[in-house]
Design a binder for these strands. Sequence first.
DNA 1: TTGTACGCGTTATCAT
DNA 2: ATGATAACGCGTACAA
Lengths: 336, 336
Amino acid sequence: MNESSPVRMRDVARAAGVSTMSVSRALKEPASVSREVRERVAAAVLSVGYVPNRLAGSLSSRRSDVVGLVLPSIENSIFAATVKGISDVLRQNGRHLMIADSGYGPAAEEAAIRAFLEQRVAGLILHDTLHTPEAIRMIRRAGIPVVENGTLTAAPLDMVVSYSNREAARAMTRHLARLGYRRIALVTLPAAANQRSRDRQEGFRAALEELGLPADPRLMLERPPGLASGAEALVRLLEDETAAPDAIFFAGDVLAAGAALECARRGWAVPGKVALAAFDNIDLLAQLNPPVTTLRLPRHEIGIRSAEMLLERLAGQKLGPAVVDLRFEIIHRAST
Amino acid sequence: MNESSPVRMRDVARAAGVSTMSVSRALKEPASVSREVRERVAAAVLSVGYVPNRLAGSLSSRRSDVVGLVLPSIENSIFAATVKGISDVLRQNGRHLMIADSGYGPAAEEAAIRAFLEQRVAGLILHDTLHTPEAIRMIRRAGIPVVENGTLTAAPLDMVVSYSNREAARAMTRHLARLGYRRIALVTLPAAANQRSRDRQEGFRAALEELGLPADPRLMLERPPGLASGAEALVRLLEDETAAPDAIFFAGDVLAAGAALECARRGWAVPGKVALAAFDNIDLLAQLNPPVTTLRLPRHEIGIRSAEMLLERLAGQKLGPAVVDLRFEIIHRAST
DNA sequence: TTGTACGCGTTATCAT
DNA sequence: ATGATAACGCGTACAA
């Protein structure tokens, strides 16, 4: 790498025979400058190889074009569609995205949030809705807009864009009951540190109660994410013939796909032996044999709306706390 | 949000009854300051709610703790393991990650690189190995370390950490031949804008030549990513009974899984009717029936080593091999 | 160990 | 339409 002296705006100004302010204006507000200056600055920028220093710019203007995003896990492809939506909207508006993960819980989220605030991001998008008191305090002090994505919380920090995990689980449970299933099992991710799983369990229980179905604790399992995990839950639920469910609702990750593949391996008929339903519309579910009934969640739309709302706030619209429910949809397939 | 006046280091200094330099030192080099000062600063930071301004810090010190990563696509879960590796190493070293995507080709990559350089990132990690001349020029001028990840290129911009796509494709092709297959087909992603696909095609052709097998153009297909795409390629290759392959090597994305699922739907025996091999060790392949032979690529390790090498450079070590080959491994399963 | 003076590269503000 | 000057908030360099 060639270590040469950095090119500053003053170098451009000198080369163009104008002041730094004219350079600044020519770059940011071309209309506020004469054609003459505009052209000479453009030429000078190219000839000296100028790359503006946004650090200095942001420090001076007290504005930033970077948005921070905190995800529970960078690995989980579930978030990919949301990230894509955010990223696209931001790019189209000349903003940039920083991503961190809070895989180790609220404390890690707090660290990520602090790092973003130190970088003076213009706004934050958080997937989780559970935050440490210190994180909340810092965000309020910073006075920047925040969007939460994970679940439709009643008391958002600022804005929420999501769907209701509770209502989605409730709707799918009722759907299964409507199809005639009576012993419905629920498998979720560990709920202890996961509001989304708790919401889904709550929706499931609410539906059972409404339907007058008993809530058998043997039919509610928690499992870590992964295909193998889903297969294991399936076997576990079906091994006790007397208490076996007639339908299993896998409300997390790729658990349902893992169970469907296990059924294929064992030659178990779906839905003959057991019906299967999933929570998220990943491609794989439609390709399985039989294809798996699931929910379509507005993942991409959540990203788009989140970024848009953040941008609206940054543009000066200080409209109060906002809760946007983007809803969901049941995709009925042959597995139920 | 509470819009209050920002807390600066001088406010902390005042509250602690010391100079701003003592605050700065107490925060960055606690050892270089008396216990007395250290404690009073710590207390003052809490009481006034101070969040350091890294923009100002970086501007002044001419150092940054942010690393920029450019991926072809934020959506593609193939990159998740690499991103995770990068992210973890950086976090452990107090650095941060910015991510952008170049989904629209080298021009978009150039835009992403420019944005990162404007933010004065400390270093860059690029997945693609094809860059515009202007991008290369900007990077050289910036004089920052760069790691490329996509394929083991002979002429890296600075450093490469990867495996050889050519050798991996060659090895799998030879593996199939050793198992007795003679009409081996190759399906890749569109190679026009994808160096990795081109490398894989080249490795495939090289293997055929070494093995004395004819290169039948009808047995080389390009398809867009996706499960459905793999299924379609499978059907296309097998529909002409006289020219049908006895093995298909899907060298991209989830194509192989799509084909395997299609075989299951049609009741085609694998490997009886046709053998299937994949390129990447995604979980799904091991769960299919039969499980699919594939390559284990060092995705996570690539992320870790990339970040480590960047950090070494930033620590001043301008030495070390600039080309790191992390190799690959064949995972033989029942599909071949 | 602590403090003072200045500079980092840009933009806001006020002149002209 | 253009320029001079003073911040922006912190770290470097040097002095005490």
